[in-house]
Amino acid sequence: DAEELIELVERALKEGREIILLGVRITSEEAGKWFIEWIRRFL
């Protein structure tokens, strides 16, 4: 579910982890915020 995915992304970014989803590397909080917004819009 989308909320679970958002929580995972937020937690990983807070822990300083690198996330790779759909071939996109997300390493900064700014990118994470963009990704979370995208999830909310399309899922």
Rank of each mutant, 00 (worst) to 15 (best):
W38T: 03
L22Q: 02
E18K: 06
A12F: 04
R11N: 12
K33S: 05
G23I: 08
I26V: 04
E3T: 11
L43Y: 14
K14E: 11
E4I: 14
R41H: 12
A2L: 15
E4L: 13
G23S: 07
L43Q: 08
E37H: 05
I39L: 14
W38Q: 05
E3V: 13
T27N: 15
E37P: 00
R40V: 09
A31W: 11
K33L: 11
E29M: 13
E3F: 14
E30G: 09
E30S: 09
G32Y: 08
R40G: 04
I19Q: 02
L21H: 02
G32E: 04
I6K: 04
A2V: 13
E30R: 12
L22Y: 07
F35K: 02
A31M: 14
I26Y: 05
L8K: 05
R25V: 13
A31I: 15
E10W: 14
R11A: 10
L13H: 01
E29I: 13
E7M: 12
I36V: 07
V9W: 02
L8N: 01
I19H: 00
K14F: 08
E18L: 07
L8W: 10
G16H: 08
V9I: 09
L8P: 00
L21N: 00
E37V: 10
W34K: 15
K14R: 13
R11T: 12
E37A: 09
F42D: 01
E4C: 12
K33E: 07
E30D: 12
R41Q: 14
F35S: 01
E7W: 13
L13R: 02
I19P: 00
E7A: 14
E15T: 05
E10N: 13
E29K: 11
E7G: 12
G23E: 05
K14I: 10
K33C: 09
I39T: 01
K33I: 07
L8S: 02
E30P: 07
R11H: 09
A31R: 11
D1R: 15
E37M: 10
V24M: 04
I19Y: 02
I6H: 03
E15I: 07
I19M: 03
E7V: 10
A2S: 06
E15C: 15
I19C: 06
G23H: 09
R40D: 08
K33N: 08
F35T: 02
I19L: 06
F42V: 11
F35R: 01
G32T: 05
L43I: 10
E4F: 15
A31G: 11
R40A: 10
S28G: 10
E7D: 11
W38G: 01
K33F: 09
I39M: 06
A12Y: 04
V9M: 06
E15A: 08
E37L: 10
I39S: 02
E3L: 14
I19T: 00
K33D: 05
T27Q: 08
K33R: 14
R17K: 11
R41W: 13
I26Q: 02
I6F: 05
I6N: 02
R41D: 08
A31N: 10
V24I: 14
V9F: 04
I26N: 03
L21D: 00
L43E: 05
V9A: 04
D1S: 15
V9C: 10
I39D: 01
D1W: 15
W38K: 03
R41S: 15
V9Y: 01
G16V: 04
F42W: 15
I19G: 01
L21S: 00
G32H: 04
E3N: 14
W38V: 04
A31T: 15
E30Y: 08
L21W: 03
V24H: 10
R11L: 11
I36S: 02
F35H: 01
R25N: 10
R17A: 09
L21P: 00
T27V: 12
G16A: 11
S28D: 13
L22D: 00
E15M: 08
E29P: 14
A12M: 05
L8R: 06
S28N: 14
E10H: 12
R11I: 11
G32K: 05
V9H: 00
L22I: 08
L5T: 02
A12K: 02
R25E: 10
E37K: 08
R41F: 13
F42A: 08
E30C: 15
E15L: 07
L21G: 01
V24W: 13
E30K: 10
T27K: 11
R11M: 12
R25F: 12
E4W: 14
I20G: 00
L21I: 13
W34H: 12
A12S: 06
V24Q: 03
E37F: 08
E7H: 10
